[in-house]
Design a protein around this nucleic acid. Structure first.
Length: 583
RNA sequence: GCGCCCGUAGCUCAGUAGGAUAGAGCACCGGAUUUCUAAUCCGUAGGUCACAGGUUCGAAUCCUGUCGGGCGCGCCA
């Protein structure tokens, strides 16, 4: 249920029948006709641009077209009045009784209000986090994790069939480093003395228990052996341990992936060759020599022939290497295979969530997806900008060298999952974000998490008090739906309901744009309407939600704010934040 | 040098399938409030939407160029 869509349909039907009556030309193109909430509330509840859009096609003046459409609109029973304004907008004002009735409709649908079938069950693959399994997650990973997860829930909410996926980069040189670092911790565990972790290895203490666990498992079997004897097994042991660690970290944020896809598996089961074959068949792989980059030349630049993918055919800047000079596959080659695999699993909509520092990599992977599917599948890469950690306005110092950086776990332990999740979604993904430990836990209007949560909690507090005031009042949804909603006549009340009615539109817009932050902003705005109404009650006792000697109006208001709480709760649910009933 | 992202109020930012007089919070200024409808409230002011062109009935939004900032720039992951 989305009243704007309904009206868009109504307007189009009116235009078609005007065409049939000969008052407007036939076969008009109506794709740009919209029905939206005007920005200025004084312009009414719904505005349509139909008259202006049709000017050229109909060869008529906008106001004349508007007049014709207006007549049709006036016949709709929920329409109060219609005005033509500005350059030809048609402003529609709805009957208060209709606005009021929306409360019932929201209560009736409950948490499902705002869900839709927009996605039509289409499969979407959202890949996020995908951090190298070489250590615990730190703050930098946090944002992408929350973003990807909220986006997934959002898409699910509007009817897509979402798969949440993590690509395990378990095949590169960094994994060898992990294995060597773990081996040292293993030697420690079996009683050898290791003075210092050498430069270039991971010094973090999180590997100590992994070394110990390895020792428990294999005893001293690897002692004194050359690297070639233990590397492969230690690698796999350590990778598993790191993935367990990462999964635990993600769990603290309530993030669970459906699929963990191993890069190594592509190397080991011929997946890479298989992926490249398809490009080969399309004649997109060749051996060639790349021009050195303009500007500053890499120190070790050496011209040599390479196996290349012709990504420039698809908008990339240069063709991209698939093999390294030692003959091994590049990371990109595995990514070709990986994305090919996603497409083979039936996904035509792919979303990858990366850090902004990988921006230069976007075009080549998009080229792959376009090439493999002849443009039928689409890859949207969402880049997440940095998070600046602050404490009371000053930057938090982090020393990466000592392996002593702020982890995701640290931040969740300090401020809690809900705060982390909400704040991470208070900025557009491609804008950098300040995270101030002091401010995000503040109990004040300046803190959006608090403000939204507080709105929800206030509703529950009111409902509790109402059941006391009216001994044993039935506040079930069934009861509230029977309330006399026509008693909700104050402008602030109607404005709150109108804000609620926007919810389905916001969800769809956010989902289509792949922008979950729009949900946070909406929730904040909606909460503001609610708090504004609450504050009005300070001066005007007659506007308070509980009116002691008037059960009927109290019930109507409880219905309204309960509906409000449903929307807040389902919005928070999309963000992965638990609504609070008490604060 | 090239590519991507960004440039909106003093500050932090919303606002893109093109819509009307460009919004919010903070800060500032002016009032109210000393309370459990507790974790403040109301209001005023603040803008050549970086700049210059173009497309359009209509541009912060789309196109081109310029300036400014961030990220990236054979074989790393």
């Amino acid at each position: 249920m989305n009243i704007f869509k309904d009206f868009q349909k109504n307007v189009k039907e009116i235009i078609l029948s005007l065409s049939n009556e000969g008052k407007l030309p036939k076969n008009l193109d109506l794709k740009n006709v919209t029905a939206e909430a005007p920005r200025d509330i004084n312009h009414g509840d719904i505005a349509t641009n139909a008259a202006m859009v049709l000017v050229k096609q109909a060869k008529m003046k906008p106001r004349d077209i508007a007049e014709l459409i207006t007549c049709g609109l006036r016949d709709i029973d929920i329409v109060d009045n219609v005005e033509i304004a500005g350059p030809g907008f048609i402003n529609i004002r709805l009957r208060p009784s209709f606005i009021q009735s929306q409360v019932k409709s929201i209560l009736n649908q409950g948490f499902d209000y705002g869900r839709s079938t927009l996605g039509d069950g289409e499969k979407v693959n959202v890949e996020y986090v995908s951090v190298n399994p070489t250590g615990p997650l730190h703050v930098g990973h946090c944002r992408g994790a929350v973003f990807g997860d909220a986006l997934s829930t959002l898409l699910d909410h509007v009817g897509y069939d979402v798969t949440r996926e993590y690509y395990i980069n378990d095949a590169g040189g960094q994994i060898d480093v992990l294995a060597r670092s773990t081996y040292l911790r293993y030697l420690e565990a079996i009683g050898e003395t290791v003075d210092e972790i050498p430069e270039g290895l991971y010094p973090g203490e999180y590997l100590i228990p992994v070394g110990k666990a390895l020792a428990d498992k294999v005893g001293d079997k690897y002692r004194g052996l050359p690297e070639s004897e233990w590397l492969y097994e230690v690698r796999s042991f350590a990778t598993d341990a790191m993935m367990d660690l990462i999964r635990e970290d993600l769990n603290t944020l309530d993030i669970q992936h459906d699929v963990f896809f191993s890069e190594l598996s592509l190397h080991e089961n011929g997946g890479i060759q298989k992926g490249l074959e398809q490009l080969e068949e399309k004649g997109l792989i060749y051996t060639g020599v790349l021009e050195p980059p303009k500007g500053k030349l890499p120190d070790d630049w050496e011209e040599r022939p390479q196996t290349l993918f012709k990504s420039t055919d698809f908008g990339d800047d240069v063709d991209r290497a698939l093999k390294k000079s030692d003959g091994a596959w590049t990371y990109f080659a595995a990514d070709v295979a990986y994305h090919s695999n996603k497409v083979e699993r039936g996904f035509n909509t792919l979303i990858d969530v990366w850090g902004a520092d990988h921006g230069g990599y976007v075009k080549r992977v998009q080229s792959v997806v376009t090439a493999l599917t002849d443009g039928k599948a689409e890859l949207d890469v969402r880049l997440c900008q940095m998070v600046k950690l602050l404490r009371d306005g000053s930057p938090v110092k982090m020393s990466k060298r000592s392996g002593n950086f702020i982890t995701l776990r640290d931040i969740v332990d300090e401020v809690g999952k809900d705060v982390v999740r909400f704040i991470m979604l208070t900025r557009k993904n491609d804008a950098s974000l300040d995270f101030d430990f002091a401010r995000v836990t503040e109990q004040s209007k300046d803190n959006p998490v608090f403000y939204v949560q507080y709105g929800h909690a206030r509703v529950f507090s009111v409902v509790r008090k109402a059941t006391e005031a009216f001994n044993g009042l039935d506040v079930s949804e069934q009861s509230l739906m029977k309330a006399n909603l026509e008693l909700l006549t104050d402008e602030s009340e109607l404005n709150l309901i109108k804000a609620m009615v926007n919810w389905p539109r916001i969800v769809e817009g956010a989902a289509l744009a792949h922008e979950p932050h729009r949900i946070s902003y909406y929730l904040f705005d909606l909460a503001s309407e609610f708090h504004a109404l609450w504050n009005k009650g300070n001066d005007r006792v007659d506007l308070r939600f509980i009116i002691d000697n008037n059960k009927e109006i109290t019930l109507a208001r409880l219905a309204m704010i309960t509906a409000f709480s449903k929307i807040i709760a389902s919005g928070l649910n999309i963000l992965g934040v638990e609504p609070l009933n008490e604060m």
